[in-house]
Simulated scan of single mutants.
Amino acid sequence: MKLNIQNETSRLRAVVLGTAESNGPIPTIDEAYDPKSIEHIKAGTYPKDSDMVKEMEAVAEVFKKYDVTVYRPKSIKDYNQIFSRDIAFVIEDKLIKANILPDREGEYQAIQHVIDQIDKNKVIILPEECHVEGGDVMPWNDYIFIGTYSGEDYPDYITARTNMDAVIAIQELFPHKTVKAFELRKSNTDPKENALHLDCCFQPIGKDKAIIHKNGFLVESEYQWLVDFFDKENIFEITKEEMYNMNSNVFSISEDVIISEQNFTRLNTWLRENGFTVEEVPYAEIAKQEGLLRCSTMPLIRD
């Protein structure tokens, strides 16, 4: 398999879509990785496997419609394997293994059948001190946008997933690209004040547009850089409530086709007004774990 990912929106040809077949029992609060999951555990509204399987199958159907090759992880009993974006990501022709939370190592092993099809020299394992998850990494042509958190209290945040060591390592891997890091707002307790990954508060769409939430960024000038880069009239600003519901976490099949959650009424209307074809799917149960469409997909090949 020859990998090729230059940006977020070129025509998709091959992708890894996670699986919800055997998520296991509802985690305890201590076992949860993010404040939104904790909120639903406490409320007794944590999603059921059967509902999440249906949601993911709806996405698989959209991929089928657009003739995209879909790979699925091997299912591990009682193990959360929904968010395939976290475990690895592709930039250009390289697959970079994410140094994720140790409890999640099995998720990477479950896509070994995909990795075996890639040239071994193109599979990159970063040094141990580099923490990174794919939700924080966005190739955008000559740029690579990366969400990070560099506060001294980094170890205290289970929601801080990508550190500056990883940003530097990625810059060294792709010296011809401009790597731009953005400090994200983190909270272990309040999902409305937590940008778990960069794609939870920002995502480029189309050729020159973006979805963004200002409060997800800790440094206003970094947020402003993105607004200036894409141009204010090309940006869809989402509210705190919309960020909480993961409105920035849609997924592009091409520059003009976007998979979006069916309840994102304001966003989906704007997308259609701006010439996008919107493929609406139900994904509200998966959203309860602070991840949505981009989180559960890992693109391998785009034109």
Score class of each variant (00 low, 15 high):
I258Q: 07
M52L: 10
I253T: 09
W140M: 10
K122A: 09
N274S: 08
M138P: 03
E237V: 04
F230S: 06
L267P: 00
K97N: 05
E237Y: 12
I235G: 08
A169M: 08
E92D: 15
H213I: 00
T69P: 02
F63I: 01
K120H: 10
E255L: 07
E279I: 05
T189V: 06
E129D: 14
D34W: 08
I41P: 03
D86V: 09
E133D: 03
R85F: 01
D119C: 11
I144D: 04
Q171C: 08
W270A: 01
L184S: 10
Q81H: 07
E273F: 04
I82R: 13
A14L: 02
D153Y: 01
N4L: 13
P282T: 03
V114K: 07
I144H: 03
G44K: 05
F276Q: 05
H176M: 11
D208E: 15
F174I: 00
I253E: 11
N249K: 02
F264L: 06
V114Y: 09
I5R: 12
I211L: 13
N80H: 13
F276E: 04
L300E: 07
R185I: 12
S187V: 00
E8S: 13
M1C: 04
S150W: 00
A58C: 13
V137K: 09
V179R: 07
L126D: 05
A195V: 01
I235D: 07
E285R: 08
E255M: 06
A166T: 01
S248E: 00
I124C: 00
E290Y: 03
E279T: 01
T189E: 05
Q112S: 14
V123S: 12
Y244G: 05
I115K: 04
S150P: 00
E105S: 13
E273Q: 14
I96Q: 02
S221C: 06
K122R: 15
N188L: 03
D156A: 08
N234E: 08
V16D: 08
R72A: 08
I212Y: 10
V250L: 02
L198I: 12
G24D: 13
I144S: 04
I253N: 08
G151M: 11
T239C: 02
H197Q: 14
V62G: 10
R185M: 14
V179K: 03
D86Q: 07
I125F: 06
N7C: 11
T189F: 04
K240V: 13
S260G: 01
S187D: 01
F251K: 00
V132H: 02
F174Y: 06
P155N: 01
P155M: 02
I41G: 00
A210D: 10
Y79F: 15
Q171L: 04
F264C: 11
D119P: 09
